[in-house]
Amino acid sequence: MNELSEFGWFWLPSDESRRFPGTLRFSTEGGGELTLHANPDVPENLLEPDSGTRRVVGMLDDDYVTLDRCFPVHTQMFGGTQRLSVGMVVKGACFDDDGELEFNSISFEVDGAPEWIGRTAVERDWRHEPADAMQYSLTLNPIPTETVDAPFGSVTLRYGWRTDGGDDASQDSIHQTRRFELQFDDLQPLDQLLRRASAVQDLVTIAANRQRRMHSLVVTHPGATREDVTGAPPKPLELLINNREGAEASVRTRSTDLLFTYEQLGGLWFPPNRGGLPYAASRSGAAVFS
């Protein structure tokens, strides 16, 4: 299923005058593709077939977007339809064409983390006396945020919640989230942020004894504020990357499958003179936050 499928206008950061209409599609399983259509005012294509990997920016219905690591996969000559492969998407800002994408924080969720952490903000109370007046109540007690210093900045675990849908008659639900946030002292290349975030994913994968998926990525940059065109408060920058993890990643984590729990690990902490969490080794054997 596509996580993103929107129409917009797209151009190179170095030449905003050459704009092309197109449709951007992106999914974490299949990657991204930008289909550009002819612009009568621009006789040539956005990218030449041999132009290599480039950055493209654009405006969707209500948001700016940066498409990185783009290259042509199909081109009709003389300004016809052109399809570009898209490596990743930053939704909420247009970045220029100079150097690597850099950010100072990244936050994300990991499948299986709720079961691994094993903490819930919901208390259930079932009362069945008297028999004709049974009561079932849910009480929400928010869990405090956890933060520790790290060699590069800080690591935070945030507990969130929201109500999901319901029809006000037969069903309603509370959805709890556990979100990791890595804050850096200064701007870092995106690949460096993803490497450290992937180490957290590896930790949950090892604990769950099966591949776990990282999703719902958000990044920040001090010079890129995602202003909402409707006048609402600024929104975070969404990051969409190709994250093929296979069918195993969709299998739910069970507490009986865990090799160790978050509590057994000691929670969120950094031992002295070490660059990572205790026992927190990636699949390559390197310390998670080294």
Rank of each mutant, 00 (worst) to 15 (best):
R195C: 04
R195L: 05
R196F: 12
R196G: 04
A197G: 11
S198F: 03
S198P: 11
S198E: 10
A199P: 01
Q201H: 06
Q201D: 11
Q201G: 12
Q201Y: 05
D202A: 09
D202W: 08
D202Q: 10
L203G: 05
V204W: 00
T205M: 13
I206M: 12
A207C: 12
A208Q: 10
A208M: 13
A208W: 08
A208V: 12
N209V: 04
N209G: 06
R210V: 01
R212M: 07
R213E: 07
R213C: 09
R213M: 11
H215N: 07
H215E: 03
H215P: 04
L217Y: 08
V218I: 10
V219A: 05
V219E: 02
T220S: 10
H221G: 07
H221V: 06
H221Y: 02
P222M: 05
A224R: 09
T225N: 00
R226M: 11
E227S: 15
E227V: 14
V229K: 15
T230Y: 11
G231T: 11
G231K: 14
A232Y: 09
P234G: 09
K235H: 15
K235F: 14
P236S: 13
P236W: 12
E238A: 13
E238L: 14
L239Y: 00
I241G: 00
I241R: 08
I241H: 02
I241V: 14
N243M: 08
N243I: 03
R244I: 08
G246F: 03
A249V: 09
A249E: 10
A249N: 02
A249K: 02
S250C: 09
S250W: 12
V251K: 14
